[in-house]
């Protein structure tokens, strides 16, 4: 703050009083004033880890959906995950990232970049298909869980009283059953409905909303005492309007941050369930299913095990970092110390 004053005062040398100097400074600052949204966007764009993660996530998503095509649209990758063929060179991956001058094979993509599995199917196409499905499930789970959690939390927090008691007891009920157990039981039920991943995704969304509901309720409990809510009530707004137009938009920070963490959690939950056999079942595919299918070939064909795992870690890690960046952007209280320290360093 003091440095800022030092910089500004020389420019306002011809003013007569302290108050005018202060006004001049305020006007000058007003010129670069930012809206709340702009501030958040700016903070997020300055979060290096989050920006790198956005890049990684976009890259993986675009690869997964464009390479083998999606929903009937053709992709640019020539092979499909269905065609078995002759196994070339033991099915070793042909992808190489080490240039020739470092002793490698040069940077090339090759015929089978991720190798082939036992029957000669192209593993790149298989992994991309699994990635597609895993990403789709995670996004649907995140969306469903966020909607349910936000609405239950908001209704409980706004109405309080017996509505709150009942909704929160229901939340406790879901929390007391270990998530993996509940998800496995519901996953098996979803498997009986049909092998489509949408059922599984919807069902997983039904069990992962509890954390968000508690957080949103806490936020709403304090927000509902504010003047703007009384104002809306006195103007005769309905409860639904107050909740959706006035209260929930004010908790957007909590909701957005938790939605990203929910997506990261959903990726891991789905892959774990598929690994145990309660999640995605053949003929559908997912990264977890690929790992459980090929885990025994680790000694002979380790790449069958490495690729899906690396992609799961990459997706979960980048989504977690994006969530961290969003949290810092929406709630900069935790990072204030850093900026002070940096300013001090810059001044010194």
């Amino acid at each position: 703050m003091s440095t800022m004053n030092d910089q500004k005062t020389p420019s306002s040398g011809d003013v007569y009083s302290l108050a005018e100097a202060e006004d001049a400074r305020l006007i000058k600052e007003d010129a670069e004033s930012l809206s709340q949204g702009q501030l958040i966007r700016r903070r997020f764009l300055h979060h290096k880890a989050a920006m790198v993660s956005v890049g990684v996530l976009v890259f993986i998503t675009v690869m997964a959906f464009s390479s083998i095509g999606f929903a009937g649209l053709p992709g640019w990758w020539g092979k499909t995950y269905l065609d078995a063929g002759t196994v070339i060179d033991g099915g070793r991956p042909t992808l190489s990232l080490i240039p020739t001058w470092l002793g490698g094979d040069g940077i090339r993509w090759g015929e089978y970049p991720f190798g082939q599995e036992n029957t000669g199917k192209d593993y790149f196409a298989l992994v991309m298909r699994g990635t597609q499905k895993s990403i789709l499930i995670a996004v649907i789970v995140g969306a469903v869980a966020t909607c349910i959690g936000a609405i239950i939390g908001a209704v409980a927090g706004y109405f309080r009283g017996w509505v709150d008691s009942i909704l929160m007891r229901v939340t406790d009920l879901f929390i007391v059953i270990p998530l993996l157990v509940l998800a496995a039981v519901l996953g098996q039920i979803a498997g009986n409905l049909g092998s489509s991943i949408v059922y599984l995704a919807l069902v997983l969304g039904l069990v992962t909303w509890t954390g968000l509901a508690r957080l949103v309720r806490g936020e709403i409990l304090s927000l509902r005492e504010r003047e703007f809510v009384s104002a809306a009530q006195s103007m005769g707004s309905s409860s639904g309007r107050i909740i959706f137009k006035h209260l929930l938009p004010n908790t957007i920070g909590v909701i957005v941050v938790n939605a990203t963490f929910a997506i990261a959690g959903a990726i891991l939950l789905e892959t774990s369930l598929s690994y145990l056999g309660f999640g995605v079942v053949a003929p559908e595919s997912s990264l977890g299913l690929l790992i459980s299918e090929y885990q025994n070939s680790f000694t002979n064909r380790p790449w069958l095990f490495w690729w899906p795992g690396v992609i799961i870690v990459a997706i979960a890690l980048s989504v977690n970092f994006i969530g961290d960046g969003l949290r810092d952007a929406f709630d900069p209280r935790q990072t204030q110390k850093r900026s002070k320290k940096r300013k001090a360093k810059a001044n010194a």
């Binding site: 891991l268 790992i291 979960a316 977690n320």
Partner: peptide, 13 residues
């Protein structure tokens, strides 16, 4: 963050 994002069954192998 890496540990958070690690699938258990994969890390176990």
């Amino acid at each position: 963050f890496l540990f958070f994002s690690l699938p258990v069954f994969w890390a176990a192998v």
